[in-house]
């Protein structure tokens, strides 16, 4: 492999996460090389969102470790951008589109520095890449679902990161937005970036992503799409839960702490 010398963009080893009354992840091992477009697929409750939240340090990790670009996340936070699910925020909040995109700069600016001309220019470019320039001063409650998703992507672009972790970026968006997002993901990859996205739609998964991570509470398979997107592995991912494992998982977390 040509990128052998570079550390993987994202690597986890024996990652175990338990999450407030929801299914958990057991001993997940994977490495996602730089400049790849990786989809995380698996049934509902398989722990897909949990995985990227754990990577971002949003959930406590029970065991194992994760590394970003060969080191702990805290050493390179500004190289990683997280795109949460659209439904995770209140879209009636009194801010406009530009305000939200500028938030992408706050991580680099820190708490005390104001956004300057350069930051505004970067935010403006990000808006242009998602074709939302005309909406810059629009109040966010006036956006459609697809436009909301584009705003979130623009905020992530404004972070100028090298690794983008996206939680279901294609959920509830119109066809035009979906294809705009796909183009955008390829752009990011072409500029050397890496994308890891939770994805729901099996029919589009093999065309959108060049690598896949099949997940169902534990890692089923990880690798290039050709290697991994096979009927046997998909059957293993989606067909039949490992009943004992999931039952014990529920028992384990519902017992009094």
């Amino acid at each position: 492999m040509s990128s052998y010398a570079m550390p993987p963009a994202l690597e986890f080893h024996d990652l175990t996460v338990s999450y407030d009354r929801k299914p958990v992840l057991y001993g997940v091992d994977a490495a996602i090389p730089q400049q790849s477009l990786c989809g995380i697929i698996g049934p509902n409750g398989a722990g897909k969102s949990t995985l990227i939240k754990a990577v971002m340090g949003l959930l406590p990790v029970q065991g194992g470790w994760t590394q970003v670009f060969g080191g702990p996340l805290d050493q390179c936070r500004e190289r990683v951008a997280y795109v949460p699910q659209r439904s995770s925020v209140d879209w009636d909040f009194p801010v406009n589109v530009m305000d939200v995109v500028l938030m992408g700069r706050y991580g680099r600016l820190g708490l005390f520095k104001r956004a300057g001309v350069k930051d505004r220019a970067i935010a403006g470019e990000a808006l242009e890449k998602v074709q939302m320039t005309a909406y810059a001063t629009r109040q966010i409650s006036q956006l459609s679902g697809g436009q909301q998703q584009r705003v979130f992507l623009a905020r992530a672009l404004a972070q100028e990161a090298d690794l983008y972790l996206m939680d279901e970026p294609f959920t509830g968006v119109d066809a035009a937005t979906e294809s705009a997002i796909v183009t955008l993901l390829h752009d990011i990859k072409a500029r050397g970036g890496t994308i890891v996205a939770v994805h729901h739609d099996l029919t589009t998964a093999p065309t959108y992503f060049d690598r896949l991570l099949l997940l169902n509470m534990r890692l089923i398979a990880a690798g290039t799409t050709e290697e991994v997107f096979t009927p046997e592995l998909l059957q293993k991912t989606y067909g039949g839960r490992l009943t004992v494992l999931s039952e014990m998982a529920f028992k384990g977390i519902s017992k009094p702490e």
């Binding site: 936070r77 990683v80 951008a81 909040f93 706050y106 991580g107 820190g110 708490l111 005390f112 956004a115």
Partner: peptide, 20 residues
């Protein structure tokens, strides 16, 4: 710290991922 409070109110999770 206005911008910090803005992020805290709008999207606290995002703020945490940025290290704020």
């Amino acid at each position: 710290g206005y911008r910090g409070f803005l992020v805290l109110a709008f999207d606290e999770t995002f703020g945490r991922t940025c290290g704020l």
